[in-house]
Amino acid sequence: MIPKPGSCEELIYKALSEAFETLVFEEVVLSEVTSNKLPEVNLDGWWASIKMLAPLPWGEIIITVPDTLMNRFTEAILGLSGETPTAEQNSDNLGEILNTICGRLMALRSNPDRVFRIGLPVSGRGLIPEQSGPFRCVDVLVGEEHIYLLAPESFWDDIIWELELS
């Protein structure tokens, strides 16, 4: 899928690309964006979530990463060679990756006068936290592995509104 220039999809893809290329030196490819369709996540997969608190309490942004890929990311970030990353390292790294994605998402938005505030990342393994309302799911590929980013529909609408104003 090639995102339309100036679209919400392009902005989110850009934030994801910048974060993954800088932190783990991996290229991501946008596969598809769906509405209210939960991804199939393996129980040994990793997730992290961050609450968006201001200027509006949109809800949570969630990311899921398969276990093998998460190990590879942690090895790249921490420069581990031959060591299997610990659960704590994977958990902390995914939280930091999502934190960076959220930061890039906010920075890339068109209205510079809005101050954004987000919560602290929470990470886990297996089933992802339940969505409290409608959401969009962004499916990106790293090689043949899928990473999913779930964002509340209201957050998505707000980006579109800002893009229309700019």
Binding site: G103, R104, M106, A107, P112, D113, I118
Partner: peptide, 12 residues
């Protein structure tokens, strides 16, 4: 060093 930086926050 923060993920959340934009002009309004930078001024603050």
């Amino acid at each position: 060093i923060s993920s959340l930086t934009n002009p309004a926050l930078e001024n603050e």
